[in-house]
Design a protein around this nucleic acid. Structure first.
Length: 356
DNA sequence: AAATCGTGGTA
DNA sequence: TTACCAAGATT
C-alpha cells in the first residue's frame, strides 16, 4: 500500500508553493494557514504574507497589527496572534531556528498535535504521523471503523494505526499523500473509489460501505442574533472600536454597537443605547446603511448599520480602544468580514459625496 | 470533554 | 436558505 500511495502521489500531487520549497518557515506558515481552511483559499494569502514577511526573523520583528492585516479574511485570528508570538519565542529561545522535532514544536503556541507532526515530517523528515480530517476519513474507510469522527475511540485507533504503519523513508510525502488522497479522491461525499490507488486495501469499499462511512455526529442548530452598529461621522472621520484581547475577532476593529434588545422600541433606539453603553457617547441615527448578514462557526447575525451623528462634542482624548479614522485609513486597520463590508460601503458613499 | 474560534464554497 | 465542511488549537 505504501508503494501504491507514493506512486500515486508522485504522479498526482498538487503543485503548491510550500512544496516546491519546503523550508521550515514556509511549511510552518502553510500548515497554520491550512488549519480548517481550503488550499485554494490559502494560496493568495500565503504569497502575500511571504512577500511582506519573507523570513521568520521579519515575522518576529513585525508589529502584531501588520500580521493581523495580512491575515484579514482568513478567519481564526488567534492563528495569526499565536504565529507571531511563536516567531518571537523562536528568536529568543531557539536562536532563530524552528525546532526540528514534533516534541519541541508542539510546545509553541498555535502548534498542536497535527501541525507539529506535519512540520516535523515535511520540513525535517521525522517519521511522525500527521493526522488531520482527511487522514481520519481515509483510515475510517480503509479500516471500516464504525465509531463516528470526533470520538476519542476513533481518534486513538487512527493515530495508533497511522503511526505504526508510517514508512520510515518518505514520512513527509506519505503524510501528504494521505491528505491529498482525502482531498482529491476519498471525498466526504461521493468518494471516487474507481480511481483510488488503494481501493483493493479498503475495507469500506470491499463491504460496499464507502458512502456510509465515516459516521458523523450531527451538530446542534446555530442560533441567530440581531445586531445594530453605528457609523458615526465627525469632522471627516468615523469612529472605530477595537475588540477585546481575547475571544471572537480579538483585537480587530469594528463599528460600535451591539445586540438589539427586546426592550428597544425600534432599531434607532437600539443603536443609540448600544453605542452609549460601548463608548459613552450620545448619538442620533440619521440614515440606514443596510442589513449585513453573516455566518460564524456556531451562530449567525444580521447587522443593521446606521449612519449617525454626535449630539455633543466628543471628549478631547478617547480611550485606547476608540479611534477616529479617515475613510482613506480604514484599510490599514485589521477588521473582520462584516466591518470590512461596512467600511467598503462607507468609502464608496464618501467618494460619491466628494464628487458632487 | 465540550465549547469556542471565521470564512467561503457547495449541495 | 440552510447545513455541512475544510491540512485544528486552545481552554
Amino acid at each position: 500500500m505504501h508503494n501504491r500511495l507514493l506512486d500515486w502521489y508522485d504522479k498526482n500531487a498538487r503543485v503548491l508553493p510550500w512544496r516546491s520549497d519546503p523550508s521550515p518557515y514556509k511549511v510552518w506558515l502553510s500548515e497554520v494557514m491550512l488549519q480548517q481552511t481550503r488550499v485554494e483559499t490559502v494560496l493568495p494569502y500565503f504569497d502575500r504574507f511571504l512577500t511582506h514577511l519573507p523570513t521568520l526573523k521579519t515575522l518576529a520583528e513585525a508589529r502584531l497589527e501588520e500580521v493581523l492585516v495580512l491575515w484579514e479574511g482568513l478567519g481564526y485570528y488567534s492563528r495569526a496572534r499565536n504565529l507571531h508570538k511563536a516567531a518571537r519565542i523562536v528568536q529568543s529561545d531557539y536562536a532563530g531556528k524552528l525546532p526540528a522535532s514534533a516534541k519541541e514544536l508542539v510546545k509553541l503556541p498555535g502548534i498542536g498535535k497535527y501541525t507539529s507532526a506535519a512540520i516535523a515530517s515535511i520540513a525535517f523528515g521525522e517519521p511522525v504521523a500527521a493526522v488531520d480530517g482527511n487522514v481520519r476519513r481515509v483510515f475510517a474507510r480503509l479500516l471500516a471503523l464504525e465509531e463516528p469522527i470526533g470520538t476519542s475511540s476513533l481518534e486513538k485507533t487512527v493515530l495508533d494505526y497511522a503511526q505504526l504503519h508510517l514508512p520510515a523513508k518518505r514520512p513527509g510525502d506519505f503524510n501528504q499523500a494521505l491528505m491529498d488522497l482525502g482531498s482529491m479522491v476519498c471525498l466526504p461525499a461521493q468518494p471516487k473509489c474507481p480511481i483510488c490507488p488503494v481501493q483493493s486495501f479498503c475495507s469500506a469499499f470491499v463491504q460496499g460501505k464507502q458512502n456510509n462511512l465515516p459516521k458523523v455526529i450531527k451538530k446542534a442548530p446555530t442560533p441567530h442574533y440581531d445586531v445594530c452598529v453605528a457609523v458615526i461621522w465627525h469632522e471627516g472621520k468615523v469612529l472605530l472600536a477595537q475588540r477585546a484581547d481575547k475571544g471572537l475577532l480579538a483585537k480587530l476593529w469594528e463599528y460600535p454597537g451591539g445586540k438589539i434588545s427586546p426592550a428597544d422600541k425600534d432599531q434607532e433606539d437600539g443603536v443609540q443605547r448600544e453605542v452609549l453603553r460601548k463608548t459613552g457617547l450620545e448619538i442620533t441615527p440619521t440614515r440606514k446603511i443596510g442589513d449585513f448578514k453573516h455566518a460564524y462557526t456556531h451562530f449567525r447575525i444580521s447587522v443593521q448599520a446606521w449612519y449617525a451623528r454626535l449630539l455633543f462634542s466628543p471628549p478631547v482624548t478617547l480611550p485606547d480602544n476608540l479611534r477616529w479614522v479617515s475613510p482613506g485609513d480604514l484599510s490599514a486597520l485589521p477588521m473582520g468580514k462584516v466591518a470590512r463590508r461596512i467600511s467598503e460601503r462607507v468609502n464608496s458613499d464618501f467618494l460619491q459625496a466628494e464628487n458632487q
